[in-house]
Amino acid sequence: MNEARNAILARLNKQINTGNSKRDQLISTQTKALNTKQTFDQLTEKLKENRAEVYRVSSKNWIDTLTQIALEKKLNTWLIGGNLRTIEQAGKALTEASPEISLVHYSQSYESLKKTLFHEIDASVTLAKAAIADTGTLILIPDKNEPRMMSLVPPVHVVILKEQDVVGSFQQLVDHPPWSIQNMPSNIVFISSPSKTADIQQTLAYGAHGPKNLIVLILS
């Protein structure tokens, strides 16, 4: 194995640089800063364009909105993460809203929860760490409280986003990332729409492998 490594690096080191390096062109592009309202409007517009459902909610009514969504769409089995006060509140409200609604806590390993995850869940609710306005993108950082599969396997995925966590562009996000560069999270996911494909004759179809519905609650 080391043999291959050394051989490849030796070959690469034989490279003679052309001298006409374009390195001086590596200036980061400046994006125009928008005010909060414009940023928010842009985010909403882009998310909707990409077939996400967006609700603007307040700290008072967000739980009502969530339970309403659950009742209207008949989403009965909810997957929720652990140890997060916001999510626990939501879970409690959901079960109180209808006797048909039940919760599955993602508090054991994927292997032991696999069957349930793939076959019994109607919807999940998770928090977003940040969002990018100009592409309508939610940034999720899965961890022990909200594992990776939560935003992937359930057919309906609800995301709660705080308004102050929205930035203008991808470039702005990576200039001040909401994660540690020294100690990178094992997984960071950017989500911009429900799962989709156009692999059959360029015809757009939603719900390819991941969630068929993406619902965003923006908390102001």
């Binding site: 990178m184 997984n187 960071i188 996911v189």
Partner: peptide, 24 residues
């Protein structure tokens, strides 16, 4: 590639499942 400003998913993987994590 497809005229999309961004794809549905952009996935950044930096490590396998950590000891306290439940999946991956």
């Amino acid at each position: 590639a497809t005229g999309q400003h961004i794809t549905s998913y952009l996935n950044l993987i930096s490590s396998p499942r950590k000891s306290d994590e439940l999946d991956g």
